[in-house]
Simulated assay, not measured.
Amino acid sequence: MARKLTPRKRVLQALRVCVPQLGVNSLRRFEHGWDNHVYELNHSLVAKLSKSSVGGFKLLKEACLLPHLRAELGEIIPRELAKCVVNIEGEECVLLVYEAIPGWVSTERGIRLTTSTHEVCHMLAQLMEKIHSISPPNECSEMVPVHDTPRKWAEALRSEVFRLIDMAGSTLPSRLRNTILERVVEYAKRLQSLGFTPKLIHGDIDPRNLLVDDTGRLVGLIDWGEAAVGDPAIDYAGLFYVEEHIGKHVLEIQREEYPQYLSPRVGFHRDLAPLYWVAYGASSGNHNLTEAGLRLLRESFPS
């Protein structure tokens, strides 16, 4: 039986097929990338190759959205250079190549160094409001899920939680799993009364996807594969994992919704987020990520 290609060789093969005119002088793997193999290409580009059909769909969605988002949000959105579907070892994969945004993942460099916390929070609040005011382009309508009623959003939420629980498997203790499911059902029943207002969302705001420059100024927002029309609370919740006090302050100063409606929804999504760590940690064998997620889930969902 032939040995499977390594991720690096799969990416190289995809590049040769899709963008043969692009010479490969250097290729460095990024550590993050749950649904895709992600590499820095020639010190100035990013190449992403899907690991599965789900990852491929997300990359096609991202490729469709990037030009429109860049027109609306400016240079914090990467410029797409190439995308294609390629067959590798009998599997249909999607390759996306875009220009890298010079900067640091905000876990490597604090999101504020010389920039004041107050200034950072106002910048993030304005960015959230701008994202949530954008309408998805018509050409991407078949790729961007639309959960525009409390019932549709609740169904999408339940489906996602079941998917993550299935990925986590036996790593997630049964009592904790049941407590999470009970909380999801309870939250879905309350959603109508919590002022749910559907808008375009990034869907994966976290430190890995926010890029900063040497002064701590935000210069990039990447990885739009989870974009959807849904609850903007999920984007605000992600800011708590950048820095908790930043998440709190942005929530206080945002002008999208009354805090008494938005805050409970943000709190729910903030508490649920570590389920992703457990699921993807379990599926990738990252024990530290799994344990960190379990610790936070036990704090948020006590039995």
Rank of each mutant, 00 (worst) to 15 (best):
D214K: 14
G203R: 00
E160L: 11
L60G: 05
M143S: 14
Q126P: 11
I101S: 02
P259F: 11
G56E: 05
V17F: 09
A156F: 13
E91S: 04
H269M: 15
E291T: 10
A71E: 13
G55D: 01
L262N: 02
V24Y: 03
A228C: 08
N25C: 10
V24W: 00
S303I: 14
S284T: 12
V54S: 10
G247W: 03
H245G: 02
G103K: 08
H269F: 14
L73E: 05
H269D: 05
T171C: 11
K248Q: 15
R8F: 09
L194G: 07
G285Q: 09
D214G: 14
F240G: 00
V266C: 07
D214V: 10
H147A: 14
G216P: 05
R298S: 13
V278K: 03
G220L: 01
A71C: 15
L176D: 02
T6C: 07
M1Q: 12
G103F: 04
R79P: 01
E92H: 07
Y276T: 12
L275Y: 10
L96F: 01
L289N: 01
H68Y: 13
N36T: 01
L5K: 05
E160A: 12
T179E: 14
E75A: 15
R158I: 08
R10H: 06
F196T: 03
L15I: 00
F162M: 12
N288C: 08
E72L: 11
R217T: 06
E62F: 00
D166C: 12
G285F: 06
R112N: 08
G267F: 03
L211D: 06
L211F: 09
P173N: 09
P7W: 02
R158M: 07
H249D: 08
M143K: 15
G285K: 11
R190P: 05
G216L: 07
G238Q: 08
Y276F: 15
E80V: 12
L194V: 11
V266I: 10
K83N: 13
L22V: 05
P173C: 13
Y258E: 15
M143F: 15
V146R: 14
T290I: 03
V185Q: 12
E299P: 06
A2R: 14
L211G: 10
S284F: 12
V161S: 04
M128R: 07
E299S: 15
E80W: 04
E256Y: 15
E80L: 12
